[in-house]
Simulated scan of single mutants.
Amino acid sequence: MHRFLAVAAAGLLGAACGAAAATEPPRESFDLRVRFAPAVYPVGGHATLVYELELNNYTADTLEPTAVAVIDADRGEELLRYEAAELAQHLDRSGLQRPVADGGGIASGRRGIVFVELTLPPRRPLPKQLRHRVDYRVAATTSAAHTVEGGEVAVRSKPVTVLGPPLRGGPWVAVYDPSWERGHRRVVFAVDGKARTPGRHAADWVRVDETGRKQRGDGHRAADTYSYGEDVLAVADGTVVKVRNDLPERQLLTERAKHDLATGSGNVVALDIGGGRFAYYGHLRTGSVRVRVGQRVRKGETIAQVGFSGSASDPQLHFHLGDAPDALAAEGLPFVFDRFRALGRYGDIAKLGRQVWLSLDDGMPDERKREMPVGNGVVEFGK
C-alpha cells in the first residue's frame, strides 16, 4: 500500500514537474557573485558603497548583459540601475581590465565585472543586504532579454575608519576615477591564490598651485614639482610593518621606466594601525623614509617625503587602506579623513596641471569632517 502510494505520488510529482518544465524550461545564466562585501562611507557628503559584482559565464554561449540593477534585499527597492552607456562605463566585459568593444558579450568561460558606485539619496535608510538583477541575452540568438537575480551580499556594518591627513597644506588633488580602465579601482591581483582589489579606495595625491599647475615655471625635473619632497604623515597611531627606501627615482618628468609587481609602488611604508587595518604609502622619495620596521609612530608624525619612485606618472603620494600590509595581497578598505577643506574638482583630469579646478557647487560648506574627497577633488589639509 505504502509502495503504491509512493509510486503514485512520484508519478504525480513527475507529471507536475514535466508540466512546469514544459512552460518554464530551465535556462543557464550568469553566476552572480560579490567577492568582497561593501561598507557605507561618505563621499562628498553622500552615503556611498563601492564594490564589484562578478558575472561568471559557465554556459557554452556568449551572454550579453543589457542592464544591471542593485536592489535593497529587505525592502525590494531598486537603488541603482545601469544600462546602455552607463552600463558600458561600469562593466569590464573582458574580466581582465582590458578594453573590449562596447556592446560585446561575455564569452563562455569568462567573467565580467560590474564596478558599482552606489550613492544613496539623503536621509534614506542604509541597506543591510543587497541583491542584484541582471538582464541579458544570448548573443548568438535574437531572443528577448532574460533576467537572473542573485549575488546577495550583506553590507558591512563595522564603522568606517577615520584617519588624519597623509599630507600637510595644499592644494592637493585626490587623483582617482572609477571609470579609468587601468586605474586603481579596476585592477584585480591574484598573487597568492586569492583575487583581491587593493586599490578599491586608493588615491594618488598631487600638489598644485592656485592656478592648477603642478610644477614651477617650465621645469622638467621632478624636483620642480610642488609635490616632490613634501612631508608624508602618519594617518594614525601605529606600528611600522614594511619599509623600502632604496629604489632609485627618475630625475626628469619625461623619463619613463618599467617596473614589476615588486617595485611598481616604489619606495614604501606600511603601518599597522590596528583592527586588521594597514595604511600603505607608495612612490616615496629615495632615502627619505625616517622610520624602521617595528617602530611605533604617532598620528601626524612625519615618516617620509613624496617622491618619484616606482611606476608613478608624476611625483605623487599613493595612499590606500587595506586589510594586509602587502600592496597587492590585500583588499582595499574604505576610509574617511577627520577634516579637510574642499576647494573644487577636476571634471576632466587632463586639465590637471594646465588649468584651475572647477567649483564643486554642491551646496555644502567648504569645511568637511569625516568624509572622503570626491574623485579628482581638490582639498586643503591643516598645516
Score class of each variant (00 low, 15 high):
T23G: 04
F308D: 15
P38G: 10
D338E: 13
T119P: 01
I303R: 05
V138E: 11
G344L: 15
A139Y: 02
R345Q: 14
E255A: 10
M1V: 12
D31K: 13
S265E: 13
A279W: 00
V175D: 12
A257N: 03
G169P: 11
S359W: 11
L253S: 03
Q295V: 12
D326K: 02
R207T: 03
P198M: 10
K369T: 04
V293S: 10
H146Y: 14
L271F: 08
Y228S: 04
G276N: 00
N376Y: 09
I273Q: 05
F308A: 12
R111I: 01
E24I: 03
A85M: 09
L79H: 08
S29A: 15
V43R: 11
H184A: 05
N57D: 08
Q305W: 07
L130N: 01
L333M: 02
R131F: 00
V378N: 10
A262D: 14
G183Y: 04
R185S: 04
D338G: 04
A60S: 12
P26H: 13
K299H: 06
V68D: 01
E24Y: 10
V191C: 13
A84E: 15
A60R: 14
R35Y: 12
M1Y: 05
V374L: 14
D361M: 12
V7D: 00
G344T: 15
R75K: 13
E54K: 06
D260L: 02
K369V: 04
Q129E: 10
S227V: 12
G274W: 01
L284H: 02
L13C: 06
R296T: 14
V138G: 05
G170V: 05
P25Y: 07
F36T: 10
D218I: 11
R110M: 01
R216Y: 09
E117D: 03
A154P: 09
E149H: 05
L12W: 11
L13K: 00
G274H: 04
S288T: 00
T302H: 08
Y58R: 15
P25V: 10
A327Y: 09
A279V: 01
T286F: 07
